[in-house]
Design a binder for these strands. Sequence first.
DNA 1: TGAGTGACTGTAA
DNA 2: CTTACAGCCACTC
Length: 106
Amino acid sequence: MANEFYEQVYALVRLIPKGKVCSYGVIAEALGKFGAARQVGYALNKCPIDLPAHRVVNRKGNLSGKLNFGDDNMQKLLEAEGISVKNDQIVNFEQHFWDPIKELEI
DNA sequence: TGAGTGACTGTAA
DNA sequence: CTTACAGCCACTC
């Protein structure tokens, strides 16, 4: 690929602290692609094994790519990090939400 | 090149 | 809060 955007997405996802989650739109925004949330998801679709994609969810906190994440149970991984998941949706999403822009802005 | 697709989001109801 | 519609950008066929 050699797409810088993809690399940035991967790099940012890896920066997500354990026990925290983020939305596609925020990631796209942090990379300067305000309307490219779908591309973030597309980038994650490549899903490198070392990429904690389970920490990335949509704006509703729904595990959109749970099935696409792989054989592993995305919900289980989140719960292992202290994130409660109910009905494929993160509980207290705002509480676990991590804003890369705000964090990187420091 | 153009049409179809998608791990999305904002707005409206 | 959810559901439905439209807009959005990049990739695949």
